[in-house]
Design a protein around this nucleic acid. Sequence first.
DNA 1: GATTAGCACTTGAGACCTTAGAGTGCTAAA
DNA 2: TTTAGCACTCTAAGGTCTCAAGTGCTAATC
Lengths: 355, 355
Amino acid sequence: MPTDKNELSERKKLILKAIIDTHINMGEPVGSKYLTRYEQLAFSSATIRNEMAELEEMGYLEQPHTSAGRIPSQLGYRFYVDQLMQQYRMSAAELGELDKLMKLKAAEVDRILDRATKLMSVLTNYTGVALKRSQSQPTIARFDVMYLSPRSFILVMLTSAGAVKTRQLHLGFDVSRETAEKLAALLNEYVAGRDMDKITLPVILEMQTRLGESEQLINPIIKAVWDTVNEPEDSELLFDGVNNLLRYPEFSNIEAVRGVLGMFDEKDELVGVMNHDADSDRTNIYIGSESPVEVMNNSSLIFRTVRNGDRIVGAIGVIGPRRMDYSKVVALVDYMSRNISKLMDSNNLIEDKEE
Amino acid sequence: MPTDKNELSERKKLILKAIIDTHINMGEPVGSKYLTRYEQLAFSSATIRNEMAELEEMGYLEQPHTSAGRIPSQLGYRFYVDQLMQQYRMSAAELGELDKLMKLKAAEVDRILDRATKLMSVLTNYTGVALKRSQSQPTIARFDVMYLSPRSFILVMLTSAGAVKTRQLHLGFDVSRETAEKLAALLNEYVAGRDMDKITLPVILEMQTRLGESEQLINPIIKAVWDTVNEPEDSELLFDGVNNLLRYPEFSNIEAVRGVLGMFDEKDELVGVMNHDADSDRTNIYIGSESPVEVMNNSSLIFRTVRNGDRIVGAIGVIGPRRMDYSKVVALVDYMSRNISKLMDSNNLIEDKEE
DNA sequence: GATTAGCACTTGAGACCTTAGAGTGCTAAA
DNA sequence: TTTAGCACTCTAAGGTCTCAAGTGCTAATC
């Protein structure tokens, strides 16, 4: 618990940053003597020791035991992330890989996120994670009916979000091809582009009247449309590189492993967090127990929304140990989420490309 | 390495079965003295000891070290599974849960498999796993065109497998609504129900002729259909209850955990195995290193195909430690895969039910 | 001939101790 | 204010001992 805000002297900041940088690299507690090797810290180990003691008192550092060095506390990491860490410069190799991904022609969110997740885990050596968010509550922009037989047809719906949804319908009575076409026309006239709660009984009755003979058709159809629009929003969570995590010493005891792996069984919680924070258009960083997903108290989560125009189609991020390379991960997540969003935007505009 | 086939005396079988049953329950090496408590083994520990020594020589048992009891070898488990284990009788509670699942109206493979995977992990306390297999190489049974604007429309395709696929097309030239309709009619006449390799140049030329003015439309369309039919078969793998596994003592050291968890990073391999064996309509049991997925050498995999009519739509199964309760798991996997298949069959026949 | 009691032997797990090394906090000098 | 120096603390790693479990073998017994 820090006594005052921002009371850190420049020297303290320097030392704190050096400790965290070192710990992120080495994974072990950092001692005063080790720090003297940094050019910027041209003090004796004793001086550094005093500063460290104060930093610990302020809550930025912790000591696993008396005779060990210091490790950053959660607060320490938070301060580091907010004020200390430097901008990461991506390597040519990384940029290359990322750009390769961006050249994928497929505009499909699904496939891009799949690949992006894998790439994330490869580039960071942590676990890549992505959320595919299926649009909630879209309206139907356009209807079509695919006539199969007098008693069965497929209702094709283009949602306002640009996805195509279909429902297969089997009837207990015959319907002619003409009626089916008329039905599609009616749906486009009365239902397309409107919120479902605008489709009131009078509207339905009018459609029935205009459809004539097969008026009994309307009810099941409206029901099917309703179901489609109100389909529970089932976000899907993707992982890649889980085994990467297990290579870090902090996951060398079973309890810790059980912890992180808990996320597989708490997918819903994680989805909840990612969905909840998706609306804020910035990079979300959860360090240790900052995450509402209790099971992840030993790890950190960084992610950012992916958009298609205004619409949020998902999120992409990384799960790693608390001492993860925040600077690098933030840079990669930012770059990737931004560019995937851009990619999808530009795909929307393609007018002349299907060679 | 067993010297002779099936040379096991009844008494040896009894002992072997008792050892394996006990080991499956307890997870620890089984000693000769412990076995004397079984009614059926009314011999002295010395006698049993002799038999055990022979069973070990034959390759059915192993001894972790001189002063420990015996554990089943892979061969031992195999023999047990093939000849020794008894039919598992499901409990009322289990049947209840299973039947609840079967009452789901949704005919959607996806959702059923999701739920089934979770249920599997709950009922067995191992990890439930399922494969959703997207149909490979279907032909297109029916086409439809959803006209959006002169330069864009959606091609809707009903595959022979019953799935609806769509492609959004953006053109560099204008097309009239009538042309779009004519296109759909032509596709239904020339392409529907045919293998793509029957769509030769003459056929394409004839379609172009009949389409008249907008003949340039045909090529991109055929390309889109081709892409759809040849879409890489991307099977999806579902997991649930990963943390269940970590509760078993055999996964109390990191190496073992890394092993099982490798399956997350070798999804493709696992998918390969499940896809490969899916064609055989029986319950597949891989014990330890019998599995071609190298990373799973410390665990066992049991799964079985799920069908919709003749078509294989996926598989469902369980991953557990080598000493898993084979009898129970096999019974559950069988029951579940059979009933899901049946459920989907019956859903296919519904003619009059969409409330 | 098959079974069993008895016993010497082997081995891992756990408790306990010791040691080495790292890093600290504090004091006194610079 | 900084630093050298030193006593102190704690862990990790290695070593030793003991206990209990389980074995294999031999000789006696059914």
